[in-house]
Amino acid sequence: MLELTNLSKTFNPGTPNQKTALSHLNFRLEDGDFVTIVGSNGAGKSTLFNAIAGTFYVDEGSIRLDGKDITYLPEYKRSRVIGRLFQDPLKGTAPHMSIEENLSLAYLRASKPGFGAFSRVSKADKAMFRDHLALLGMHLEDRMKHPVGLLSGGQRQALTLLMATIVTPQLLLLDEHTAALDPATAEKVLELTRSIVAERHISCMMVTHNMHQAITMGNRTLMMSDGSIVLDLKGKEREGLTVEQMLQMFRDKANKALDNDRILLSSLGN
């Protein structure tokens, strides 16, 4: 369970570039929730993820994950329990290292800090990696020794998804993780996301600019504007919702339209 209380973050305070990215934001994610997040550019979606993941510390407020206060925990310590995927497929993997080495890095989360630093990846671990890779259905299990730099963007993103979840995280943050992929690959990675999240019962937050995705994936949808959550749809009110209805709700709440070409295009497309 993730609990955000009164979260605020201002960039470049006291300068002409001052920007309030998060403004007294409150939010509570229940165990097993799969939340989709939409909002215009600059609404604070990525800032919210960065704050949760610990890329920076917030100015105000507190972050609790499964009852533990992680507000001042450094990023690398939070990443033991928080998995994260970015829009850029190149961000999540080390290109000059093999698939096997990348996975063993991700699997370090399973061991205690510092424990077994000089141990090598065991046969059993390798077999386990192979089984996991096979589930992706991309034949990567036959290419364990290949450098990751040789894989396509979609393959790298699928691998990153596997790395983020190989040790079941308490929270999975997906920041438009399919936006840079071609439609067929994006659909494949989304399907993998859906099945892994459901199977392991992972609490998950996903930023998307695709309105159709936003209402079809997960069990709850947030809309952000100017650093706050303006709309929180779940249960009955979310069922059977159309993209047009949701855009209208957003206009009413935020007093402005979702001003993003990608949103318009993706809502027309679906």
Binding site: A53, E75, Y76, K77, S79, R80, G83, R84, F86, L90, K91, G92, T93, A94, P95, H96, M97, E101, N102, S104, L105, A106, L108, R109, S111, G116, A117, F118, S119, R120, V121, M163, A164
Partner: peptide, 22 residues
């Protein structure tokens, strides 16, 4: 070793390393 792999990854992709709890 695990430590050696972590050091190599730090030079290869620091973003990814931070996200892997290192």
């Amino acid at each position: 070793t695990r430590l050696g792999i972590s050091i190599r990854a730090t030079g290869d992709n620091p973003d990814m390393v931070r996200a892997s709890s290192i």
